[in-house]
Simulated assay, not measured.
Amino acid sequence: MLAIVVAVFSIAGMIKGTIGLGLPAVSMGLLSLVMTPFQAATLLIIPSMITNFWQLFAEGQVFKLIKRFWPLLIGIIVGSIWSVFPTLGHGSFKSEALLGGMLALYGVYGLCAKNMPNLAPQEKWLSPFMGYLGGALTVATGVVVIPVVPYLQSLHLKRDDLVQSLGLAFTVSTICLAIYLHLNPVKDIPIDYKLSLIALIPSLIGMWLGTKIRYRIPEQKFRKVFFAGLVIFGGYMVSHQLGWI
């Protein structure tokens, strides 16, 4: 299990270092093949928290972004408390299928990202709604991707502001997920903070390698391969969990 965790977080960290996102999605997707999504989410807490803080505070203007996106952040918090979806580890709902669907949608979005409309004029009322859905899906799948990532990218922010905004949303979502997992334990599935801390090391090494890779291969080519892989992988998870294959 230790070898699997190290390998998964090394790959996920490398992808995050290369394109700026993907650590939770890749980690949850791969780990859910060998453990429950609830257990996988517990391992994600410390690596996600540290790497998101790194991303958030890499540049200035943090308080400026909080002032702008506080409705989105409040929505994430509310969604994680009162989720309309079945949550991780509870009930008979196959959260693996929902996670697979999220990954597939994420992949489709990534392949079509250049065609995203400009939603900045609707930001005032869209932010709390998108935040709520993001928070609700975070405690349901362990991943904050849809719709927060495409929504922030549709606002046509400057590159540094976009990276920090994603880091801000990811940080708040990870905190909410950690609180949820702590307050809603699943019988016979302990929260392994020690293994989560160990997972931080390959995550950081992977991020460092990813920054090196970023300058050696065309980013757009890498993104296409990555997102196409998510579509295939997510589709497989959905089909497998629903008994189609």
Rank of each mutant, 00 (worst) to 15 (best):
M1R: 10
L2D: 09
V5W: 04
P24L: 13
M28E: 09
L33G: 08
P37H: 04
Q39W: 01
A40L: 08
L44Q: 11
I45S: 03
M49S: 12
N52E: 10
W54L: 09
E59G: 14
G60E: 14
F63E: 11
K64M: 11
G75D: 03
S80Y: 10
V84H: 08
H90I: 09
S95K: 01
L99S: 05
L99R: 08
G101R: 06
G101H: 09
M102D: 08
Y106P: 00
L111S: 03
P117E: 13
A120H: 07
A120T: 12
K124E: 08
G135D: 14
T138R: 06
G142F: 12
P150M: 04
Y151F: 15
Y151W: 07
Y151K: 05
Q153Y: 03
Q153F: 02
R159T: 15
S165Y: 03
F170H: 01
I175G: 12
C176D: 05
A178W: 07
I179K: 02
L181P: 05
L183Q: 11
P185K: 11
L195D: 14
L197F: 04
L197V: 03
I205P: 00
G210W: 01
Q220Y: 05
L230T: 07
L230K: 10
F233I: 04
H240M: 02
Q241R: 13
L242P: 00
